[in-house]
Design a protein around this nucleic acid. Structure first.
Lengths: 235, 235
DNA sequence: TCAAAAGTGTTCTTATTACACCCATGG
DNA sequence: CCATGGGTGTAATAAGAACACTTTTGA
């Protein structure tokens, strides 16, 4: 019954965010074939006929990084008629958040060359991947303000300074150290592990862990996680 | 070069929001053919081979409502393998905001039966349209909190009470009249038209207009439009 | 002993909340 | 003259912003 309709090839593209040394980064692959050979591109793949979109995105992530059970969320579809030079290909964009230390480059056809790149300093990606990256980064910004997903980018044990740098690099604002600590601690969603850093050439910082259970309880009670930035016209 | 890949039929589905008599509504059509004949469904259509996704969504909107230059935004793609009983159809969901008074039902194949329905009280839509509606409504909630798009649902001249009811019905909270007025007026994005309602059986309300230019200026200066709801865990 | 980052409180200002009565109109 | 929704202010509380010095460690 559907034969009479136009069809399109489907793909998924994944903006994989990682956080390392105070910088927000994304994982790119260097294309080995036409079109756009030798340009950097978002990791992606065609969607199989019997495969859900989310499944395809997870497959790409697994093949490239070896990681499962990772934060992954669809952003939107990109489907301009001319976006792929070889024909109609609609791509569904995803973003995912991984703990960069867990990432081991995988031996896979896709990962001929895979590299972390700082999010700024990127232009001239293949296809419309600059647009896709822009949309995904914006969605990350928005999400990180209203949901405690930033922790997905940090190791299980982290310091308050790392957490602050994370927010600063995603929101691209400078936050006040004392105010930040006061507030994040007063939210009561961090567990103080009573451990400290080891082997750093300065006073070692306390280590914390995100308390998912406590957060779930707060959310049930109607509390909203919120990190702010900017001046407000508010109601 | 793309022949070897699986292909899917593409469609767009559009959650068209309107606001009338203090209620948020969406426009649904009654299906006249299989599958899901006689069930209510979101208005949508297949995407042509030479047509951008956004263009297809605007085409649907125009055919059904006769309206152009309307707020329209993509939400996300829905592409579960079994979502269409006849084969692989991936649909791109959009939501749009129209001034319900502008809507005149169009003579079109699509609009055999088109009706406004309150957003709650909906279940048992065709396909996965309940899911799509849920995602679009959530996106509307989110958008309305951070961008002054609620005005798209109101007539060009509106009262503060109408505006308040609009926010209440989208966010599903009760707002305090005095506080709401104080705040929205202090944002300085409303023009007091120095006109009043006519023919109402009570003290007539002042009419206001949204000041898009002033808002654009504020935004350039880094101000953020924000309507709040709920208790906050905030940083 | 130096360099580097961790950690800590107070004050001032701004935003949020809660709350009740009189006003203008049409019927 | 009644019913209906319009319009208004203040005080108490909570949240946000600004700001500088001491501590702990490794090299």
């Amino acid at each position: 019954m559907l034969e009479r309709f136009n069809k399109a090839v489907l793909s998924v593209d994944n903006v994989i965010f990682g956080f390392d040394e105070g910088d927000l980064k994304i994982l790119l692959i260097k294309r080995g074939e036409e079109p756009y050979s030798d340009l950097w591109a978002l990791p992606g793949h065609y969607v199989h006929g019997d495969e859900d979109l989310d499944t395809a995105a997870r497959r790409v992530l697994l093949e490239l990084t070896g990681l499962e059970n990772v934060f992954l969320e669809q952003v939107k579809a990109f489907g301009k008629v001319g976006r792929h030079p070889f024909g109609r290909v609609v791509t569904i964009a995803y973003f995912s958040l991984i703990k960069i230390k867990d990432y081991k480059i995988q031996a896979s056809s896709m990962a001929r060359v895979a590299e972390w790149h700082a999010v700024d300093s990127l232009d001239n990606l293949a296809f419309d991947h600059n647009d896709i990256l822009g949309a995904c980064f914006q969605q990350l910004k928005l999400s990180v303000k209203t949901r405690p997903i930033g922790f997905e980018l940090l190791p299980p044990k982290f310091t308050l300074t790392e957490l602050q740098y994370l927010y600063e690099s995603i929101l691209r604002v400078k936050l006040d150290k004392r105010n930040f600590r006061k507030k994040i601690l007063s939210m009561n969603v961090l567990i103080d592990l009573n451990e400290i850093q080891d082997g750093v050439a300065h006073r070692p910082a306390r280590l914390y862990q995100f308390d998912q259970e406590k957060y779930n309880k707060f959310r049930e009670e109607g509390y909203v996680f919120e990190v702010k930035e900017g001046k407000r016209l508010s109601v």
